[in-house]
Design a protein around this nucleic acid. Structure first.
Length: 925
RNA sequence: GGGUCAGUGGCGGAAUUGGUAUACGCGCAACACUUAAAAUGUUGUCUGCUUAGCGGAUGCGGGUUCGACUCCCGCCUGACCCACCA
C-alpha cells in the first residue's frame, strides 16, 4: 500500500475490532474500572450531527487512553428514542413511530460505526424497547408507592399547536420549547413527581461531585435555594434574602419602628477592607457622580407608579441617556430589554410605601428597596447632590470635585453617545482621587479630549487630606456594596456582622427566617402517543391503582392515528379495547391512564441499564452496579443545554433509587464536563431548516473518519463554540498523509529511502544522527503534553503538539522504529485506524489500542542547552545559549558580556539583575 | 437587571499560569519539481519606519511590577444561561 487509503484502512479495522470484540467491557474484571459516558443521542431523521462526533470523539479518546492505561473500560451507547419529532413524523407520514425509530437508529448506528468509536455495542440500549421501558415504568411505580408520584389538578403550560402539556422548564419565556409557539395556561389533571422533596439534597450533594463550576452554578440557580426573611405587614407578605441591607431598613420603616434606617456599607474592592460611608441611605448610582441613585427600577410601571403617587422622579439614567417623556422602547436593535434606573425621592412615609406594595399593576414581584431621602426646595438634582456630598463628607474644599460631578452629569445629557468621553472623565476622577496623583500633560489632554475641563484645574494637583476620604469618594461613585460585612449607621444593629444582623433585624420586625426553593414539582404527564405508558388504572371503586409489577411492561398498543384527541387527550384514549381494563385490586371495571411519560424519563436512568443491559429480573443487578457504578459514572460529558434539566432529573431518580437501596451511590456522576457547540461556517447555529448543516457521511468518504476526528479535536477549545470550516479540514488530512509516508519509510528495512523522500529533504538536524538528543527531548515533551492535555480536554493543543513532533521527525536524518511507535501510540486515541494500520506495518501483531500507554522520561524533558532572552529594562535585546545546569552567576555574567547588552546599557551600571531559570535574564539599569 | 464566559494576525486559535506574544493549522505570496496543472516540497507572511536596525500592537483608559495577553480598577463589545426573583 503506497498511498494513504483511508477507505480501505478504516473499513478493515472496523471489521477487525468488531470481530475481536476488543472494546467489549467485562463486568467484574479485576483491577481498575473506568466508566465513560456521553449523552445517548436522539435518533432524529436528520442523521448524525457533527456536534455528536465532537463529544463522542472526546470521550472516545479518553476511553481509549484509559484502556491503554490498563483500565477495564465501559464506553456504552444507546438511543433516547421516545419523543416528539418521531411522533410528528409519524403523524405526517402515517408510519409507525417504532418503525421510524428503527430506521433512524439503523442510520445512526451505521454512521457511528463508520467513525470508529470504541463503544461496547453489545450493551446498546433503546428507551423505546419494552424490555427497557418495563423498568422505566417500574421505577415510576416505586415512586408512586412512596408517594412521590401523585395526580394534581394544576394550571399547566399548554401548547395549543402541539396539543401537549409542558413542564415549566419547557415553556421558558411563554414560548413552547418544541414548536416556538405561544403557550397558554390550562387546567389539567396531571401526574406529578415530587422532585421538590429532594431539593435540599440535590443542592447540598453538589459539594460531593466534580462538575465544572459553571454547571454546579446552573444547578444551584435552578434549584434556587434561598434563606431569607419572611415578613408580614397587614395583608402583605414580603420575602427577601437580605434583610440586613436596605430591605431591612424598609421593613423597619414600614413596621413603624423608625423613620430612616438602613444597614448599607461599602468595601474597598482592592483591599477588601470595609469602609463606612456616610448615611448609607444615600448611595450614588453607577453613573451618578452627580446624582443620588435610589432604586434600580425596572420599567414604565416605575414611572406610572411615581406619577400616581405624586412622587418626583428626579432623574433617569440609562447606559445611553434618554429623555423620559419620549422614552422609546427598544429603539436600538438587538438591545437587551431596557432597564431604567429611576431615582425616587421624597418617599418619606409608610403610606407611600404601602401604596406601592399594594399596587397591583406590579404583579407579584415588586422592588422594595427604596431610598428615603429628599431634595430641598428650589434645588436642582445636581445642587442637591453637591450639598449632600458636602454635608456628608464634611469636606469643604470640594469645589473642583463638584465641578467634575456636574460636568460628568452634564456630559450624559450633552454627549449621549460619546461613551468614550465619559470613560475618560471617570478615569480622571479616579486618578485625581486615588493616592496616585496624576499629572496630565498637554498631549494626553488632547488625546483624551479633556478640553472641556478648565485647564488650570487639571494642571493643579489636588491634594486629598487622607486616603480614606479619597476612597470614600471614589467608592460612592462606583459601588453600593451588597456583600457580607459589618453594618454601619444602623441604630442598635451598628457594628453587627451582616450574617447576624439578618436574623436580628428579622426578629425585630416580627418576621421569620425561612428556606425557599425555586424548584417546582415535575409535571410528568404528556398527552402524547410516543412515550412510556403510565402503568396506572383508574378504578371506579378503588381510585388510582398501580399495575402489578408482574404485568410490566405495559406495552404501547398500535394505533391508527397518532394525532392527540381534540380535547387534548393522548391518542391512546381512542383505543377503547386498551383503555377498558380490570382493576388489579378488585377486578372490577377500570380505565387505563392514557397519559404517557416525558422523554426525560428514559434518560433519567439509562446509565444504570448499561451496566447490565440484558437483565430480565432487575433493571440492573447490584453486582453489576457495584462494579461499574463504584463512585458513580467516572466521567460524563454532554452539552450545556442539558446541564440543568436532564442532570437534575437523573440525579433526582438516582437519589430515589439510592433510598430504595437498589443503587450503591448517592450521586450518579462523579465528574461532569461539557462541550461547546459546533456552529455553521457563518457562525450561526446549524439547523436543518436553514440548510447549513454538514453531512458527516460525505466528509468521511472524502477525507476519512480519522481526519474528521482529528479536525474536530483540532478546530478549537473543546468547551467553546467553534465555527465549522470544511476548508480547514485539509490541515489534519495532510498531517495524516505525512504520518503515513513517514511510517512507510521508517518501516522499510533500508533507511536509505529516508533521504530520497522528497518530503524529507530539508535535513535540518543532519549533524545529529541517528536520532538526535534534541528530537528525543521533543518526543518526551510531546508524550507529556498529550497525556496531560487529554485529561484537561485540551485536545486542540494535544493535536498541535503532535504536529510539531511530526515536523521535527520529518526533518531528522533517521527515525527509529521504537520512537516512531511511541508517536503512533499517542496518536492512536485520536486517529485509531491509521495508527492501527501503521502499528501493524511496524511488525506488531496485537492491537495498538491494547498496548501500554507510553510514559515520558522526566530526565529527557530538558535539553542540554537552552536559548534564553536577555532583557535590558524589560526589553529583549539579546539571546543567550546556556547549558542546562549552568550556574546563575555565570549566566548573568555572560549576559553582561553580550555585545548588544553592553550597547544598550550605555555605560551605566546594573541596579539589579533578574534571572528566571531557563527563561530570561533582565538587567535593570 | 443578575450569573457565567469570552475579546490576540486575513481566518480557527497558542502562550509553560507574571517571564523572549502570535505556537500549530487554514489562507495567501514567491520559488523548486512539471510540457502544463494538481499534488508535494522550500521560503516568507502582525504592523509602521529613514529596514544589518528601530519603534508600535493582545477590545478601550489607567494602575501594580524589573517585566502584564495573564493580576487590580474603570469602561466598551459579544455569546450563553437566568430573571422583572436575590
Amino acid at each position: 500500500m503506497k498511498e494513504y487509503d483511508h477507505k480501505k484502512i478504516e473499513k478493515k479495522w472496523q471489521n477487525e475490532w468488531d470481530k475481536n470484540k476488543i472494546y467489549t467491557a467485562k463486568t467484574g474484571k479485576a483491577g481498575k474500572k473506568f466508566y465513560g459516558l456521553i449523552e445517548f443521542p436522539y435518533p432524529s431523521g436528520a442523521g448524525l450531527h457533527v456536534g455528536h462526533i465532537r463529544s463522542n470523539t472526546a470521550m472516545d479518546i479518553i476511553s481509549r487512553k484509559r484502556r491503554m492505561e490498563g483500565y477495564n473500560v465501559l464506553y456504552p451507547i444507546g438511543w433516547d428514542a421516545f419523543g416528539l419529532p418521531t411522533e410528528n413524523y409519524a403523524i405526517k407520514t402515517g408510519i409507525q413511530p417504532a418503525k421510524v425509530t428503527k430506521q433512524n437508529t439503523d442510520t445512526f448506528r451505521k454512521q457511528l460505526k463508520m467513525l470508529g468509536f470504541s463503544f461496547d455495542w453489545s450493551r446498546e440500549v433503546n428507551t423505546t424497547d419494552p424490555a427497557y421501558y418495563k423498568w422505566t415504568q417500574w421505577i415510576f411505580l416505586q415512586m408512586y408507592k412512596k408517594g412521590l408520584a401523585y395526580k394534581a389538578k394544576t394550571e399547566i403550560n399548554w401548547c395549543p399547536k402541539d396539543k401537549i402539556g409542558l413542564a415549566n422548564e419547557e415553556a421558558e419565556g411563554g414560548v413552547c420549547d418544541r414548536c416556538g409557539g405561544p403557550v397558554e395556561k390550562r387546567e389539567k389533571e396531571q401526574w406529578m413527581l415530587a422532585i421538590t422533596k429532594y431539593a435540599d439534597r440535590l443542592d447540598k450533594d453538589l459539594d460531593t461531585v466534580d462538575y465544572l463550576e459553571k454547571i454546579k452554578i446552573q444547578q444551584r440557580n435552578w434549584i434556587g435555594k434561598s434563606e431569607g426573611a419572611l415578613v408580614k405587614f397587614d395583608d402583605i407578605e414580603i420575602f427577601t434574602t437580605r434583610p440586613d441591607t436596605m430591605y431591612g431598613a424598609t421593613f423597619i420603616a414600614i413596621a413603624g419602628k423608625a423613620d430612616r434606617f438602613t444597614g448599607q456599607y461599602v468595601t474597598n474592592p482592592a483591599s477588601k477592607e470595609k469602609i463606612p460611608v456616610w448615611e448609607a441611605e444615600y448611595v450614588l448610582g453607577d453613573y451618578g457622580t452627580g446624582a443620588i441613585m435610589g432604586v434600580p427600577a425596572h420599567d414604565e410601571r416605575d414611572f406610572e407608579f411615581a406619577k400616581k403617587n405624586k412622587i418626583k422622579i428626579s432623574q433617569v439614567i440609562m447606559p445611553v441617556l434618554r429623555d423620559l417623556k419620549n422614552l422609546p422602547r427598544n429603539d436600538k436593535k438587538d438591545t437587551k430589554r431596557d432597564v431604567v434606573h429611576v431615582i425616587l425621592r421624597n418617599l418619606k412615609n409608610k403610606e407611600i410605601l404601602l401604596a406601592f406594595l399594594k399596587d397591583e399593576s406590579w404583579g407579584d414581584n415588586k422592588p422594595i428597596n427604596f431610598i428615603i431621602g429628599g431634595i430641598e426646595e428650589g434645588e436642582t438634582e445636581v445642587e442637591a447632590s453637591i450639598r449632600e456630598i458636602k454635608e456628608e463628607t464634611g469636606y469643604t474644599d470640594v469645589e473642583f470635585k463638584e465641578k467634575l460631578s456636574i460636568e460628568t452629569c452634564a456630559e450624559f445629557f450633552q454627549a449621549q453617545k460619546d461613551v468614550n468621553r465619559i470613560v475618560h472623565v471617570r478615569t480622571l476622577v479616579f486618578n485625581l482621587l486615588s493616592e496616585k496623583k496624576v499629572e496630565i500633560n498637554e498631549e494626553e489632554k488632547q488625546k483624551h479630549d479633556f478640553k472641556w475641563i478648565p485647564e488650570s484645574q487639571v494642571a493643579s494637583k489636588i491634594t486629598i487630606p487622607d486616603d480614606t476620604l479619597a476612597w470614600k469618594y471614589y467608592q460612592v461613585g462606583g459601588f453600593a456594596y451588597e456583600g457580607e460585612g459589618t453594618l454601619i449607621n444602623s441604630g442598635e444593629f451598628t457594628g453587627m456582622d451582616s450574617e447576624v444582623a439578618r436574623k436580628k433585624i428579622t426578629e425585630y420586625v416580627g418576621g421569620k427566617i425561612v428556606t425557599k426553593f425555586k424548584l417546582r414539582d415535575w409535571v410528568f404527564s404528556r398527552q402524547r402517543y410516543w412515550g412510556e405508558p403510565i402503568p396506572i388504572v383508574n378504578c371506579d371503586k378503588c381510585g388510582y391503582v398501580p399495575l402489578n409489577e408482574k404485568d410490566l411492561p405495559l406495552e404501547l398498543p398500535k394505533v391508527k392515528s397518532y394525532e392527540p384527541t381534540d380535547n387534548g387527550e393522548s391518542p391512546l384514549a381512542n383505543i377503547t379495547a386498551w383503555v377498558n381494563t380490570k382493576c388489579p385490586k378488585c377486578k372490577g371495571k377500570a380505565k387505563r391512564e392514557t397519559d404517557t411519560m416525558p422523554n426525560w424519563a428514559g434518560s433519567s436512568w439509562y446509565f444504570l441499564r448499561y451496566t447490565d443491559p440484558k437483565n430480565k429480573k432487575e433493571f440492573a443487578s447490584m453486582k453489576a452496579l457495584k462494579y461499574w457504578m463504584k463512585n458513580g459514572v467516572d466521567w460524563y460529558n454532554g452539552g450545556m443545554e442539558h446541564t440543568t434539566l436532564h442532570l437534575l432529573y437523573s440525579r433526582f431518580w438516582h437519589k430515589f433509587l439510592y433510598d430504595l437501596k437498589v443503587v450503591p451511590t448517592k450521586e450518579p456522576y462523579m465528574k461532569r464536563t461539557s462541550h461547546g457547540m459546533i456552529l455553521a461556517e457563518s457562525g450561526a447555529k446549524m439547523s436543518k431548516s436553514v440548510g447549513n448543516t454538514v453531512n458527516p457521511d460525505e466528509i468521511v468518504k472524502l477525507y476519512g473518519a480519522d481526519t474528521l476526528r482529528m479536525y474536530e479535536m483540532f478546530m478549537g477549545p473543546f468547551d467553546q463554540a467553534v465555527s465549522w470550516s470544511t476548508e480547514s479540514m485539509i490541515g489534519p488530512r495532510r498531517f495524516l498523509e505525512r504520518v503515513w509516508r513517514l511510517g512507510l519509510k521508517v518501516a522499510s528495512p533500508t533507511q536509505q529511502n529516508f533521504r530520497a523522500l522528497p518530503s524529507l529533504r530539508g535535513l535540518r538536524h543532519a549533524e545529529n544522527s541517528p536520532m538526535s538528543a534534541q528530537l528525543l527531548t521533543i518526543l518526551h515533551k510531546t508524550i507529556k503534553k498529550v497525556t496531560e492535555d487529554i485529561e484537561s480536554m485540551n485536545f486542540n493543543t494535544a493535536v498541535s503538539s503532535m504536529m510539531m513532533l511530526l515536523n521535527d521527525m520529518e526533518k531528522c536524518e533517521s527515525v527509529q522504529i521504537k520512537d516512531y511507535k511511541i508517536f503512533l501510540q499517542i496518536l492512536a486515541p485520536f486517529a485509531p485506524h491509521i495508527a492501527e494500520e501503521l502499528w501493524l506495518q511496524m511488525g506488531e501483531r496485537k492491537s495498538i489500542h491494547l498496548s501500554k500507554w507510553p510514559k515520558y522520561d522526566p530526565k529527557k524533558l530538558e535539553n542540554e542547552t537552552v536559548k534564553i532572552g536577555v532583557q535590558v529594562n524589560g526589553k529583549v535585546r539579546a539571546e543567550l545559549v546556556i547549558g542546562k545546569d549552568e550556574d546563575e552567576d555565570e549566566i548573568k555574567a555572560k549576559a553582561m558580556r553580550d555585545e548588544n547588552v553592553i550597547k544598550w546599557m550605555d555605560g551605566k551600571s546594573a541596579k539589579k539583575i533578574i534571572y528566571v531559570k531557563g527563561r530570561l535574564v533582565n538587567i535593570v539599569i
